[in-house]
Design a protein around this nucleic acid. Structure first.
Lengths: 110, 110
DNA sequence: GCACTACGCTACATTATCTGTAGCACGACG
DNA sequence: CGTCGTGCTACAGATAATGTAGCGTAGTGC
């Protein structure tokens, strides 16, 4: 479990372009999902686990650490994970995805 | 290698919400990156591989198949992968990510 | 103090997934 | 025919995720 995120080099950032680093960071299992679940209000680690279909705490913890190092997520004082201002911004970016997903389903079968 | 994408159930869609299916589909290695690299003009499978830092053809082929089944990517007549209209829509959604990534880098170190 | 609960977080064996290299079948070009 | 470029696949080795269990800490009620 390497610790390299946000400190200058994330896996996939070989090109130097920050989008790649971001794309790679978000393209990990549960990363997008975590941001999505945190979009409303902060959740405890166990609450987040429940929200994420009981994903294993190992990955969740790993993603949470990466996301924290990236500055998108933070651990509140009284416990519970929440989005930082930056994380909230990022989440805004994904909001259109919700509407898109609905349209997508109606077009792709189902 | 299971074939289940877009045909009603993708891994992670247990909740039934299409966002989850989409989040899960895009939250696989190279999925986001592939969409991103295809955003401009179509690329051949090898061209795409080059664009994706020489990622192994195994995963690329797997993602390409999933993305095709999802209706985001298509294989052109004369060869070369390109985005479908739906895929292009999805890509539009990610465009703000580029600007965000720049801001992110300046805030998170580097 | 003591049990009880919930928190963030970790260990570890099993299983799934990705990497890297090689190579196939097909077609176009010379 | 030989060579090149397609899309795509096989397979061994490395890496990451799963699932279950449990740690240390902190707050509660007694």
């Amino acid at each position: 479990m390497a610790k390299q995120a946000a400190s200058g080099k994330v896996r996939g950032s070989r090109t130097g372009r920050p989008v790649m680093a971001l794309l790679d960071l978000l393209g990990r299992r549960w990363a997008l999902r975590i941001l999505w679940e945190l979009r409303g209000e902060p959740l405890t680690s166990r609450g987040l686990r429940t929200a994420c279909d009981e994903a294993s705490p190992t990955v969740l913890q790993a993603r949470l650490t990466e996301l924290r190092e990236a500055g998108f997520v933070e651990l509140g004082d009284g416990g519970g994970y929440g989005l930082t201002a930056l994380g909230r911004e990022l989440c805004e970016t994904f909001m259109p995805l919700h509407r898109f997903a609905e349209r997508w389903r109606s077009k792709s079968g189902a």
